[in-house]
Simulated scan of single mutants.
Amino acid sequence: MSILKIAVQKSGRLSEKSLQLLADCGIKISNGERRLKAVSPNFPIEVLFLRDDDIPQYVEEGVADAGMLGENEVWEKDKNVTVIKKLGFASCRLSLAVPKDANYAGPQYFSGKKVATSYPVILQKFFDQNNLDTAIETISGSVEIAPAIGLADGIFDIVSTGSTLQINGLKEVEVVTKSEAVLISNPNLSAEKQQILDKLLFRIQSVKNAAENKYILLNAPDKAIPEIIKILPGMKSPTVLPLAEAGWSSIHSVIREDAFWDIIDQLKALGAEGILVTNVEKMIL
């Protein structure tokens, strides 16, 4: 029986989120002893725990069939892999930053200067697109200290909240690109492994659908049902059940979480009462 080998980051928040996603998909993985690989007892996959910047190469070479990692590492390593799914977590931006007292007026600021980064490939593309003659100092580890020690005039790095930049006396001036966790695969999977990957993708999509939607229940006067249905279409149409009190019904539907607060006032204006909103564990369309 074929087993799909999937690489995830061996530690850190992205690793935790990746393993949580597999758990939400009903896939059991145990790595309690910090092993470098673990086989699921209830789904045909083997998880390899690797450095995130090594994952594209391992997937390209077929050591791993698929991988979960930040899309920024996919761009930086530029390997022959296929991005097949954005996973919706580990969102960040890759930005240029300069000393907070610098007089920054646009990308031309970097012309003739030096920028320190761990992502020289992504950064060079940005400088090329803007016709900037800028030197890139490639370093690993914490790049925020580079301007303070005179190694560079600015930095290019991952930014989440910006607090690390502030602590080091820097300010974010250009968002070059945005990144999030993605699922990649080797473009030449066997038919058996592709079938396993498709099953995994189905489960991931069901989990993502559930995370993006809420189940809503409410009571409303029967005369308001046509208008309520217009704003609560559900997956196909809402479920409407009569209540014991004549002239009233219970309406059950599914709505996108980001739309709920925009329509709650409309529902109340139409006479809706007893509105309950709950999480959806899985959602299969």
Rank of each mutant, 00 (worst) to 15 (best):
K5T: 11
V8G: 00
V8W: 02
Q9C: 07
Q9F: 06
G12D: 00
S15K: 03
E16L: 12
K17S: 06
K17D: 10
K17F: 05
Q20S: 13
Q20M: 11
L21M: 06
L21H: 01
A23P: 04
C25G: 06
E33Y: 02
A38V: 09
S40G: 05
P41R: 13
I45V: 02
E46T: 05
V47R: 11
F49V: 14
D52S: 15
D54G: 13
I55M: 02
Q57Y: 10
V63S: 12
A64Q: 08
A66R: 11
G67S: 01
M68G: 10
M68P: 09
L69F: 10
E71C: 06
K79C: 13
N80D: 08
V81G: 04
T82M: 14
G88D: 08
S91Y: 14
C92P: 00
L94A: 15
S95A: 08
L96F: 09
V98M: 11
P107R: 10
Y109C: 08
Y109S: 10
F110S: 08
K113T: 10
T117V: 07
T117W: 11
Y119M: 13
L123E: 08
F126I: 03
F127Q: 01
D128A: 11
N131Y: 04
N131E: 10
A135K: 03
I136Q: 10
T138M: 02
I139E: 05
G141M: 05
S142W: 00
V143T: 00
E144R: 09
E144D: 04
I145R: 05
A148M: 13
G150I: 13
G154C: 07
F156D: 06
T161E: 01
G162A: 03
L165Q: 07
I167Y: 11
E172A: 15
V173L: 12
E174Y: 09
E180R: 06
E180Q: 12
A181N: 01
A181V: 01
V182T: 04
I184T: 14
P187E: 09
I196W: 03
L197T: 15
F202C: 05
F202E: 07
R203W: 04
V207W: 04
K208W: 05
E212D: 14
L217D: 13
P221H: 08
A224K: 14
I225V: 11
E227P: 02
E227G: 04
E227C: 04
I229C: 13
I229H: 14
M235S: 09
T239C: 03
L243P: 06
A246N: 05
S249N: 04
S249F: 01
I251C: 00
I251P: 00
V254F: 07
R256W: 13
D258C: 06
F260H: 03
D262R: 03
D262G: 09
I263W: 08
Q266D: 14
L267A: 02
L270M: 14
G274N: 13
K282I: 13
M283K: 15
